[in-house]
Design a protein around this nucleic acid. Structure first.
Lengths: 333, 333
DNA sequence: TTGTAGGCGTTATCAT
DNA sequence: ATGATAACGCCTACAA
């Protein structure tokens, strides 16, 4: 591999001049520049990015922590981030936190040790205090789908409360009042906010919240089936089921069908996230759109603006969910 | 940030000694080691991985190129790779190729420029010759789901031909002989092999291959619906549909239902890949299992063994697909 | 076992 | 506009 030194020799100029044409951040005469360019071409020279990083203290890489690498939700999120960053020549190091505090911290340490220029985190288990502390460090930290007081400028998030409200409102407006709710894990902010929205909608329509029609799921298919099973075993009666994400809605549907329930006639279901597959579930799932791909884009833009000093980037910190009405809700009465 | 030099001062030893305890690759007396360890702790020292990389010519990072970051297939693949590599302290840089030759090459260049220790590629558009040439370079290249002559030791792949055979055999054994086939894009090796298996099975059972019941899809939901639509518009008659992946099967099912077809009674469908959602499709999709998560693991192990010289790693280069029988195939006659 | 010193390939600050 | 030269933080012969 050719080095900058060999290029400078072949072009009969100094090291510094070659560096200047590489970064083109200082005036170099056209003649000299051409000589250098030719020499680089002849040698097939490529700058060594590691050496560049060491000397410039900038690695051009941003570390991303997601809960899982697979799954429709994180897939969209990563795709959004990568597309934007890659176009700017930055690269992206992914790691996982699996929604567990230790693993999240471990992942963050891992990313820090790689000298990332910035961190984009989708963390769920770690405390706000930890994040506040982390933000005092050398590496700027950005948060997706999580709002931390004092870090507002570093957060890109969805109005989950509104989403929760919307879902419940939709169900109520179709005439339902016996409504079951399968939430996500209690400790996750997304779960809490969606549930809060649900309760606000109920209150708004004067429907009491019924603990017996509440189940804490896991945001996976099993959460949906387990929840529905639990309601049924306890002989609860309800005409509609709200699931805090589409995967649980999907699990619930599969289970409902095993029970022989006609969907949506005997049970209306609504999900949350609008993952790609939700329109291929039968009946097509009504859900709340979560623009996670756009949010990924936006977070990347935020990093580009703040860390890499790109100009003219419009940042939107809050995204509004909206209803996607399909076929999984029946009108009652 | 503390440097190795400050640690050496505080511990009153030389730079070299500190380096030795960091890498513990040379004998250091327990007393000295402890002094150094204490000093590191006191300063909150962390080695600068960039400097380590420059000096040692090893970045501890492996570059991964996938077609897409989202999607159930690549999600599983990435998760498999990351889990294994992360456990070994290596990090992982992802980028995308979008199944287009230019973008794939571009992605590979991008990865190379980051001095990855190895490349794991899932490329579909680039030629074999290009890969052969690439392999002559400094960075070892590993291939997933693609077999290139001369690079066999660097490939981890699935017997797609067998999978294609299995799918078709299953359908035939249920009494079907009018069988439509929606393939993946022609240029993708996976598509070609699955189709080859399909044809072999037909031949084996003395069923002629019917061009009119063949459609080239795109491996996405739309491919399935478009294919089915095309068959129907041309008034072809068939009782079973084989899709070269689950996403197309899902798209086809959704469309079939829009047409009012009873599934599986009026149309049997089988997919390929066994993505997570396939069991939540209604009727539950029969399909061919593609152990892509395990293949990701295995590829990572291969890199660990060959590039990072880990011992005792058993490598399996070929994976066999197997049938997952569920509810989307009806017995005929 | 421990220390010395040169090198890894750049960037960046001075001069000139 | 161009050239010396000192960082950047670490690894690794080689020497002691």
């Amino acid at each position: 591999m050719a080095t900058i030194y060999q290029v400078s020799e072949l072009a009969s100029v100094s090291l510094a001049t070659v560096s200047r044409v590489i970064n083109n951040n200082a005036r170099v005469s056209d003649k000299t520049r051409q000589k250098v360019l030719d020499a680089m071409a002849e040698l097939g020279y490529r700058p060594n990015s590691i050496a560049q990083s060491l000397a410039s203290n900038c690695t051009n890489s941003v570390g991303i922590l997601v809960s899982e690498l697979h799954g429709p939700f994180f897939g969209q999120m990563m795709a959004g981030i990568e597309a934007e960053l890659r176009a700017a020549g930055k690269h992206v190091i992914f790691t996982t936190g699996h929604s567990e505090e230790d693993k999240e911290k471990d992942g963050i340490d891992f990313l820090i040790s790689r000298n990332c220029d910035a961190l984009i985190l989708h963390v769920e288990a770690v405390t706000d205090d930890y994040l506040l502390e982390l933000s005092k460090g050398d590496i700027p930290v950005y948060l997706m789908s999580r709002l931390v007081d004092g870090l507002n400028e570093r957060c890109i998030s969805l109005d989950n409360e509104l989403g929760g409200y919307l879902a419940t409102q939709t169900i109520i407006e179709q005439g339902h009042s016996d409504i079951a709710y399968i939430a996500g894990p209690k400790f996750k902010p997304d779960s809490q906010d969606r549930l809060a929205g649900h309760k606000r909608a109920l209150a708004n329509f004067n429907i009491p919240f019924n603990e017996e029609l509440y189940f804490e799921g896991d945001f996976k298919e099993t959460g949906g089936s387990d929840g529905l099973k639990s309601f049924i075993e306890h002989k609860k009666s309800f005409s509609a089921l709200i699931c805090a994400n589409d995967e649980m809605a999907s699990g619930a549907m599969t289970y409902a069908r095993e029970l022989g329930l006609a969907l949506p006639e005997q049970l209306s279901i609504i999900g949350f996230d609008n993952i790609i597959f939700s329109k291929h579930i039968h009946p097509k799932l009504s859900t709340i759109d979560n623009p996670i791909f756009e949010m990924g884009h936006m977070t990347a833009k935020l990093v580009l603006r703040d860390v890499y000093k790109k100009k003219d980037l419009l940042i939107k910190h809050f995204f509004e969910p909206k209803l996607i009405a399909r076929d999984s809700i029946a009108h009652l009465g």
